[in-house]
Design a protein around this nucleic acid. Structure first.
Length: 285
DNA sequence: GTGCCATGTGAAA
DNA sequence: TTCACCTGGCACC
């Protein structure tokens, strides 16, 4: 990946955080940084990091960790509004509510609007990670850990996929899009899912989210459908397309509120309960 | 220019 | 269950 001179990283689902970790590594790893909190809400934390060497960034789900040679760890969660704006050094005077500014001899990064920005110990980091399910973007992810929860649960697939303790890093966009791509009924219970269907869903998530990291945005259309997307529209099947015709079957895309969030789905295409794979024939009784 | 909605989470009530 | 976080994009005037 190549980084431009100035880069805004927002839209925080898991792919965003992994992309951010890669960029922070490229810009800061091995360098002494100055840390400050122009906004004033992270003055003490910034003082703990100031003047130490940034060793490596790590993403897990929607969480970002910055490891420093002092052993201190910066934990950031962007939440809904959080952004990182990175530039080459020296940075311009801070604009807006900059919670944290990191500057090295090469680069600078401004963090705004995060849900979490704190300095933690490794024990605290591990405690946090222990509450997360496997992250499809990590090599060490174990999808059977998620399956163990899903196949015993009566909760809907839509609800399970948004639960960070089941799968880490999925947000409302990936949830809607992967359920669509697998033609799964969002209301179907986890307990009805066949192991092979879960495997297919997981494989699709891994591929989609890697694509998101590479491209820097969430695009989910298969090549054969990409030409049907309206010009200038994001390349997605259902997310934020309510009322518009499905690109595949023409049925109007619907929204349903699930736990306070809008779920986007196509009633025409998404009819599978997931009891068996697409095309798989019922076994003889 | 104004106002609304949104990718998420956790604290307060 | 509701609100705070406090930003960016976009529709609308």
């Amino acid at each position: 990946m190549r980084w431009g001179r100035e880069r805004l990283i927002a839209m925080p689902e898991g792919h965003t955080l992994h992309r951010l970790a890669t960029e922070l590594d490229a810009r800061f790893a091995g360098d002494i940084v100055t840390a400050s909190s122009p906004q004033g809400r992270f003055v003490e934390g910034a003082a703990l990091l100031d003047g130490t060497t940034f060793e490596a960034a790590e993403a897990y789900g929607k969480h970002l960790f910055g490891h420093f040679d002092s052993g201190r760890i910066l934990h950031v969660h962007l939440g809904l509004y959080g952004t990182f704006l990175t530039t080459e050094a020296p940075p311009p005077p801070p604009r807006g509510a900059v919670r944290l500014r990191l500057t090295s001899r090469r680069s600078s990064a401004d963090l705004r609007g995060p849900t979490a920005c704190e300095v933690v110990t490794d024990d605290q980091r591990l405690a946090l990670l222990s509450r997360l399910g496997p992250d499809p973007l990590r090599e060490d992810a174990d999808p059977t850990r998620a399956w163990a929860v899903v196949h015993r649960s009566r909760r809907s697939l839509a609800s399970l996929l948004m639960d960070q303790s089941v799968v880490a890093g999925i947000g409302n966009v990936y949830r809607a899009e992967v359920l669509y791509r697998q033609r799964l009924d969002p209301a179907a219970p986890g307990s009805g899912l066949a192991r092979g269907v879960w495997g297919d869903l997981w494989t699709d998530l891994v591929q989609l989210m890697h694509r998101g990291v590479q491209e820097g945005h969430i695009g989910t259309l298969r090549p054969q459908h990409a030409l049907r997307a309206r010009e200038g529209q994001p390349h997605r099947y259902v997310y934020r397309r309510q009322g518009e015709p499905c690109l595949v079957c023409g049925t109007r895309v619907r929204t349903t509120e699930v736990e306070g969030r809008n779920l986007y789905w196509c009633p025409g295409c998404q009819r599978r309960s997931g009891r068996r794979r697409v095309g798989q024939v019922d076994a003889a009784p």
